[in-house]
Amino acid sequence: MSTRWYPVYQKGNPQLRVFLPNYWMKLVKPDDKQPPDVVQFQVPTGMSNHDIKNYLEKIYKVPVAEVRSAIVAGKCRPWRKNAYIIKEDDFRRAYVKLQRGTTFQFPDIDEVDSQSEAKRKLEASSEEAAQNTTSFTNKQDGERSGIPSWFSI
């Protein structure tokens, strides 16, 4: 399925449509200890077990034996400190059992990241800059609103 509207297909016309799903699946690090032939995903709540199976088999050619999934409620957290509670979005957690003989191990992402030290430095500096600006704006908008900036340090 695609969100784009195509002209109605007539016999003999060129094949314009490629049917790709509107869904995307997020491969996540398993919460619990799992055997090597079980893989955990986070998928949209609208996706069914058949969709998940077809998605993996047709697009990625992964041999799937069984799919089990359930909707998980998003976490509730305070929006700000001492503010009201907001709820994050729900998602569907899927456990995919692979065919016998196929195993999967979630890659160690920390190692991959440690290679790009420069990238990390850049991120740190940009974070610092962002913090400075927020603290400055907070000062201006919050407790010291209406007071000129030279009033204190």
């Binding site: 619990d32 200890k33 799992q34 055997p35 079980v38 069984e66 089990r68 059992k97």
Partner: peptide, 11 residues
């Protein structure tokens, strides 16, 4: 030795 949570491995 198969000590995994049976809810995850076999539903």
């Amino acid at each position: 030795s198969y000590k995994y949570d049976p809810r995850i491995t076999h539903g």
